[in-house]
């Protein structure tokens, strides 16, 4: 099976984020990592390839720094990478991101495309499904298991409140992958070495520009949310904080 995995670079989970001067985006001087479900999507693609043979290609749309995500994927076992490289990709809405990726892969023939189910920065939860519509392919979302069969694939979708559902999907198809579908591997030293010689195709904004339009949603303002509760902060060295907290648990919350 030939599988494309869409991977996005997002600010590290623990990184303290600051707003830019205009209050429309974050300051870019933070550390980045791969969007969590995308790491699971890559792992799943590698496992499918190990079972059924084929090829795993990774793609990202982002500035130069985003190539780190691709290099890590190559080190873990992806065969080649496509980098839509331009700082402008950071600002695209989900529709345009999907259109740009679709344009960059128009000469390829994949059996499956995996995306994460949601990005940590925008949180649109849309790019994969939109990509499927653009390509005219079927899709299934929030996937926790994939089995290949004669007719295509059988996937396990996560639903709300502990429910699941198997769905038979013909190929080619787009799947959005949920975190926890598998156990992630680490890159090996050999893998890291080999990655250096694996192909990475760069795609400029100009090459896909004709496929991309103006954003259909505009971020007017980004700001720190207002607190809805009157939170009391307990301060001091650990022993003192522990004392204060137990006092609250005992006399105010009455749980001790």
């Amino acid at each position: 099976m030939k599988i494309l995995v869409c991977m996005k670079q997002v600010p590290q989970k623990d990184a303290p984020l600051k707003l830019n001067e205009a209050g429309t985006w974050i300051r870019e001087d933070v550390s980045y990592e791969v969007n969590e479900p995308d790491a699971f999507a890559l792992e799943e693609a590698l496992r499918q390839k190990e079972k059924h043979t084929g090829e795993v290609v990774v793609v990202t749309a982002g500035p130069a720094r985003a190539s780190q995500v691709l290099r890590e994927a190559l080190a873990k076992g992806a065969d080649r990478a496509i980098h839509l490289e331009d700082a402008a990709f950071v600002g695209l809405d989900a529709y345009n991101t999907a259109r740009a990726i679709a344009a960059a892969i128009k000469d390829e023939k994949f059996d499956l495309i995996f995306t994460g189910l949601q990005s940590d920065d925008y949180g649109y939860a849309q790019t994969g499904v939109i990509l499927a519509e653009i390509l005219g392919w079927p899709h299934a979302t929030i996937i926790m298991q994939i089995e290949k069969n004669d007719a295509g694939i059988r996937v396990k979708r996560e639903l709300e409140a502990g429910f699941f559902q198997y769905v038979d999907v013909p190929l080619p198809a787009v799947l959005t992958i949920q975190s926890g579908i598998n156990k992630l591997r680490y890159a090996t030293l050999i893998g890291i070495k080999q990655a250096k010689n694996k192909p990475m195709r760069k795609v400029t904004l100009a090459e896909v520009q004709s496929a991309v339009g103006g954003n259909l949603q505009k971020i007017e303002k980004l700001y720190v949310p207002q607190k809805s509760k009157n939170t009391e902060f307990l301060e001091g060295p650990p022993a003192e904080v522990a004392k204060k907290l137990v006092e609250k648990l005992k006399n105010e919350l009455r749980v001790i």
């Binding site: 940590d120 949180g123 949603q217 505009k218 971020i219 980004l222 949310p225």
Partner: peptide, 17 residues
């Protein structure tokens, strides 16, 4: 208004289509 960056920020978003 919608959350972004895992709830660390909130964005005011308008429809531009």
């Amino acid at each position: 208004t919608r959350q972004m960056f895992q709830g660390k920020f909130v964005a005011d978003v308008s429809f531009a289509g």
